[in-house]
């Protein structure tokens, strides 16, 4: 019985310690007295992860190849077909180049985002999908990365930097239920909030603040941007609305969007170290395929 009492005392003591640590860390936020401990943890363990990633990556690639082998053959076929189609299109585009140059001149800065980006590789990922979505990048303070910077990849918005170590940094993905991104509907000024929907990173929840604004599947969302581009710069593509929830009588409307960036399989991403001097608006969105082109013409009711 003596042993049990001692065991209980130890349990009580450690539980209390854990609760105190949690409370202090939660209340104090960034100025927490635990920040040096966390910083040291990030520096040491992040370093270990970075060294290990060189060894682990070939193994991971091999496993991935095994798991994806059945789909790969089909994908090769598909890519070959797409390649042929693109070759044809390329030939046709040479003819349109002159027109395109004039158009580009007219559109001015809208051609591209003009972000200054530091490329990075994802080296570790935190589990519990739907509750906590975070990845570790192999760039850190030495590369100019600071907390509250935007992270994106070639397809769209990925997340924001929350903690930076000497050579690694932690990124919370936009599919994390606790993250909130200001979003703007393409071709208008309707704004809303994007949260993770807990669907393993495949869907995002978009809450449109104006319930009377038109909102249909196929609409695309770009980031609204915050003051001085912290933590999200403006104009980064976020996703495409997939379904709209009917919420009659409510002040906001809820829709679900598929993110442009594949958040379940991240490889190379970029950290925006310098926001664009002016909001690129919809300029970074991919060009729509022919049949849907009418929807971008500034008349969102055109389709309905």
């Amino acid at each position: 019985m003596k042993d049990t009492r001692r065991g209980r005392a130890i349990l009580g003591l450690l539980l209390a310690t854990a609760l105190v640590i949690m409370t202090v860390d939660h209340r104090a936020g960034d100025g927490s007295p635990l920040a040096p401990v966390k910083g040291a943890g990030t520096a040491v363990l992040g370093g270990v992860e970075q060294v290990g990633s060189g060894i682990v990556q070939p193994v991971g690639r091999f496993l991935q190849a095994l798991l994806e082998a059945p789909g790969a053959q089909r994908q090769i076929e598909q890519l070959r077909r797409e390649n042929d189609r693109l070759k044809q299109e390329l030939a046709a585009q040479a003819l349109d180049r002159r027109r395109s140059q004039e158009l580009q001149h007219m559109l001015g800065a809208a051609g591209a985002g003009r972000y200054k980006v530091v490329p990075a590789q994802v080296i570790a990922r935190r589990g519990a999908p739907g509750f906590e979505e975070a990845v570790e990048l192999d760039v850190g303070e030495a590369d100019g990365v600071r907390p509250e910077m935007t992270v994106l990849n070639g397809d769209g918005l990925v997340g924001r930097v929350v903690r930076v170590g000497p050579s690694t940094s932690t990124v919370v993905l936009i599919s994390d239920p606790a993250s909130a991104v200001g979003g703007r509907l393409e071709g208008g000024d309707e704004i809303g909030v994007v949260n993770g929907a807990g669907e393993y990173g495949r869907l995002l929840r978009f809450r449109l603040l104006d319930s009377t604004a038109p909102l249909t599947p196929g609409h695309r969302i770009v980031s609204f941007g915050s003051h001085r581009g912290v933590p999200y710069v403006a104009g980064v593509p976020i996703g495409v609305i997939e379904k709209v929830e009917a919420t009659p009588g409510e002040l906001t409307r809820i829709a679900y969007a598929r993110p442009f960036a594949d958040l379940t399989a991240l490889g190379v991403v970029g950290v925006v170290v310098e926001p664009p001097r002016r909001d690129p608006r919809d300029g970074v969105l991919p060009v729509l395929p022919e049949p849907a082109a009418g929807a971008t013409g500034g008349d969102p009711n055109g389709g309905t």
Binding site: T17, A18, L19, V20, I21, M22, D25, H26, L34, V37, K38, G41, T42, L45, G46, E49, A124, R125, R126, E132, E133, A134, V135, E136, V162, R163, G165, T168, T170, V171, V172, D176, A178
Partner: peptide, 8 residues
């Protein structure tokens, strides 16, 4: 790392 939750 990566952590996004409260320490403890």
């Amino acid at each position: 790392p990566p952590v996004a939750h409260v320490m403890g």
